[in-house]
Nucleic acid binder design. Structure first.
Lengths: 334, 334
DNA sequence: GGCCTGATCTGCAACGATGTATGCCAACAG
DNA sequence: CTGTTGGCATACATCGTTGCAGATCAGGCC
């Protein structure tokens, strides 16, 4: 079997508890004793059994991260940042893919998954705030600002409205007047789709350009969704001089479809996205987009969650820090 | 505090062990007793404490997955597939990012990380076979066929040699004669880089085309590495009519750089990659590449690892299944 | 010398589940 | 009526740690 503290204690000639004390850096241990224990640990190749420690201490030092799917670049990049942020603070991250299904999201919120983690980072896609509050247990929970927004929940916010307005304003400044929106439904006002659409409308209004619902097409937020949606729009005879994909995958899908159809980008039609995934820089033409502060989001979310975990008693008001965004102008919409 | 089996037992009026038996589907339980227990579980909202179960049973039902970084699309997509494959078999996956650093890889192989998992899936990048064997503990370990290859280790193999030869043969069939290779060093013979380079050479030899080491440029296996490397090659005055990026990120980086420099792809220079990440389909022009059977690799690796975990006693010979590959011809090299 | 203080180390119980051994009862055979 | 079998339920020990409450001992002080 595995080497236990007991074995180390025997070899070092001390009590089991002393071994524990050495490992946990208890202050009052004679240097010589400490050394003997450390030598024994080395000799036997002892490794702390984290499962036992968790059971006894009630802490797992793991954070849960629930997202739709790692194969989506934005989530993968965010997950990577979150894992790094957690790591530097002594936590590991256990990822759970919800596949965008309400049942999976609910299960992740309340199921046994929670017993494995000290707290949860959650990117909700299928559940609304009400359902989340119902399903969530007592453990700390921090949402990552995507679709849901609610004053009762801790979350890190993306400036969906302002960032989308900035992108739109940039397109308008470039002289575009008929800007198609890919990834929303006319009338959406909540969630990332709604908030970004509202930002788009606000920028139009600022510039005195009329809003035309015919320019708004909805679809799955994936590359193929974006390609299909812009195709549908063009086939329906609607003309446009710019496309705003509500995330980069949509924009890249649309960009691809436009080029396939022989449209010149950006001369004829400009394209812009939202997220600034790495791929955006290397697309051809490279994609103009807005960076929602991914690293900052990861950092803030992890920090907030760990604060909640470690200061359970203190229960200050709900926190909703906002990440800062930055427009990235590239070739697709100079 | 949390609800325990004890609480359930009290409410249901049975012993703690009976609750355990119900949960574990023990056969001989009166239907009425079972129902009473289930009702109590429901009433109290009891959730099994997985930490306690793990400690007692010695199984965590978690697989470790060590890879360089989730922000690399190929790894993210592979991780996603692995998590799904593990999930259907009742296992969760704990991901650890090595950042391509030997120290991190070693730590993941032997550290406390192992006590959290029943077995490890490992994509080695920095360590060689010898170091892996030295560092690895007794728990099951399966490598994912990237760089390391060794008859003493379980692993799922990618047909690096044959797949790279197939890509090269396709480029040759298209009339290309000066095919640059991005991502290897002349003389590499092992690892993904070496094996793919060897495949390339074999295909050249088959077609009676001479191998020119000047066409081989090395760099980091990332988009920006590919861009920089092809730039370096062209700046040095070497001309080529095709580029084979040893993975898709390299190929896409190179593709981007070529277009920036005004080269026509594929008319002037064809581009091909290796991996078939989702992005390849939506690049412009879309990228010709080879799909190394990612889903199959994930499936096989998980299956092999779980077999090792669950049939510890039986220790048959080392297993090294090979995933099948498929050429995906697209616009960048028709 | 007796008492107190602080450094150093120890034993026991407990975290919440499961494995083993066993008890109890009804049904059935002899 | 006794003995055996099999269904059903239980008690106890145990996994490897850590928290809590001491135990021990040397040195300083009155």
């Amino acid at each position: 079997m595995a080497v236990t503290m007991n074995d180390v204690a025997r070899v070092a000639g001390v009590s089991l508890k002393t071994v524990s004390n050495v490992i946990n850096n208890y202050e009052f241990i004679r240097a010589t004793t400490k050394q003997r224990v450390l030598d024994a640990i080395d000799e036997l190749g002892y490794e702390t059994n984290l499962t036992a420690r968790s059971l006894r201490s009630g802490k797992t030092s793991m954070l849960g991260l629930v997202l739709a799917d790692l194969s989506i670049p934005y989530y993968a990049e965010l997950a990577s940042d979150i894992m790094k942020a957690a790591w530097t603070r002594g936590y590991r991250v256990l990822v759970e893919q919800s596949g965008n299904e309400p049942e999976h999201e609910k299960a992740a919120l309340q199921g046994q998954f929670r017993t494995l983690t000290d707290g949860l980072l959650f990117i909700p896609l299928a559940l609304d705030a009400e359902q989340i509050i119902d399903a969530a247990g007592k453990k700390p929970l921090v949402l990552l600002g995507e679709f849901v927004q609610d004053p009762r929940l801790d979350m890190v916010l993306i400036q969906n409205h302002r960032a989308a307005a900035a992108v739109t304003a940039h397109l308008l400044a470039g002289g575009r007047r008929r800007i198609a929106v890919v990834g929303a439904h006319d009338g959406d006002t909540t969630g990332s789709n709604g908030l970004r659409l509202e930002g788009y409308k606000a920028a139009l209004a600022d510039a005195g350009v009329a809003y035309d619902p015919a320019l708004v097409v909805d679809c799955d937020w994936r590359r193929d969704g974006g390609a299909e949606a812009i195709g549908r729009l063009l086939d329906s005879g609607v003309e446009c001089d710019a496309v705003f994909g509500l995330n980069d995958a949509l924009a890249l899908g649309a960009l691809h479809e436009l080029l396939v159809r022989g449209r010149k980008v950006p001369e004829e039609i400009a394209v812009a996205g939202f997220d600034d995934i790495d791929e955006a820089r290397f697309a051809s033409p490279s994609l103009t987009t807005v960076a929602p502060g991914r690293a900052e989001i990861a950092e803030r979310a992890v920090e907030l969650l760990i604060n909640r975990i470690e200061n359970k008693d203190a229960a200050p008001a709900v926190q909703q820090p906002e990440a800062s965004f930055e427009l990235r102008v590239r070739q697709s919409a100079p």
